[in-house]
Design a protein around this nucleic acid. Structure first.
Lengths: 193, 193
DNA sequence: GCGACAAGCGGATTAGTTATCCGGATCGGC
DNA sequence: GCCGATCCGGATAACTAATCCGCTTGTCGC
């Protein structure tokens, strides 16, 4: 059931489109397929054939980042320190959203254009759940938070940090602060005065 | 410098437009001025004259809620318990955003269409800052959070809760949980085990 | 009341955006 | 180098946003 590889020219165009889209995303410009086509030096039809909607293109742009996040998450599950594993994963998730503008809309969308996206999002979701459960079982966090809260909270924190003016680095710092405060609120040991 | 009152028919149309817009917002429909005009039984020109952009109309719809929030905030400043005053204010702010769909976009917008909106947002901002400072001075919260963090965090929490499926009431509960965890993370006294 | 003029109305029309469709070009296997 | 499958391109249709101006209506002085 593996679909045959694209014809050479089609593959080349696909790459061009995605790379133009990546640039636009990084520049903060909203993706408009006609615009992408023009910038890639291609006909509009070509772009619409490869990506029926702007969401599909955006998800394609976001895919590598999601894959990286999943990889890091799986790595974190090997960490013997359950609390640290959770924290690392959460921090990475938030940071990625601030660093890559393609992630927040993809993460927040209730429904996906590409099956692959759904797959990756589910992986992230379950990694978060596993890490949280593990930290909880190890007695390192209180049970105030449920597995279903992890991803939304990360999106929320990224969103909050995004509202601040300043550089991306500033926002990452801010998000880190928020995340720390939140984690402090769910830890089992009392903080030092 | 007070601008003369609207002519009677103009005032009536203004009301109609705002009330139609309110209904659309409550229904979760994005505001389209042509659509609003049609539903209000008015010409498009009439709507565009009163509200040059969809943002202006949305802000007008949101204004009463913002005013209520400001009023509650000012009331909270009279509470002798600094910590409780802060919590009340924060909770109300988050709840309002989940209850009224006009608030989140207005709160998050970096720039406003109406001067009145800017005014109200600044009030909210400074109320939050005051309450936080007061709670801090009373030794009830740690200085991890700055005044500039209050509003973005409330937006972020509302955003996170919004990502959950379920009824509005469910989301309010969820948001409350998030806010509690966050506040727990910045309190000065150690939580009970 | 009535006239005159400012204020407001309406919706046809223009500008801008999104998406489709199909005749023609290109590729790759033979 | 031929042929069919695959893919391209951009004209065009469909939809949405915003403007403009001739006509109507309310208000105010008499």
């Amino acid at each position: 059931m593996t679909t045959r590889p694209l014809r050479k020219d089609a593959a080349r165009n696909w790459d061009r489109i995605v790379s133009v889209a990546r640039e636009l995303v990084d520049a903060g410009t909203p993706l408009q397929l006609n615009d992408v086509a023009h910038r890639a030096g291609l006909g509009v039809g070509t772009v619409y054939r490869h990506f029926p909607t702007a969401e599909a293109l955006l998800e394609t742009v976001a895919t590598p980042c999601l894959e990286t996040l999943v990889a890091h998450g799986e790595q974190a599950m090997a960490d013997p320190d359950a609390r640290r594993a959770l924290e690392d994963f959460l921090f990475r998730t938030v940071e990625a959203q601030l660093t890559d503008a393609s992630l927040p809309p993809v993460a927040a969308a209730p429904t996906d254009a590409l099956p692959r996206t759904t797959e990756l999002k589910q992986s992230l979701w379950s990694i978060g759940a596993t890490l949280l459960t593990r930290a909880h079982k190890a007695g390192r966090v209180r049970p105030d938070l449920a597995a279903a809260d992890v991803v939304p909270l990360m999106c929320g924190i990224a969103y909050a940090a995004q509202l601040h003016s300043g550089t991306t680095a500033d926002r990452v710092t801010t998000a880190h602060r928020y995340l720390t405060a939140l984690l402090e609120g769910v830890r089992t040991t009392a903080p030092r005065p």
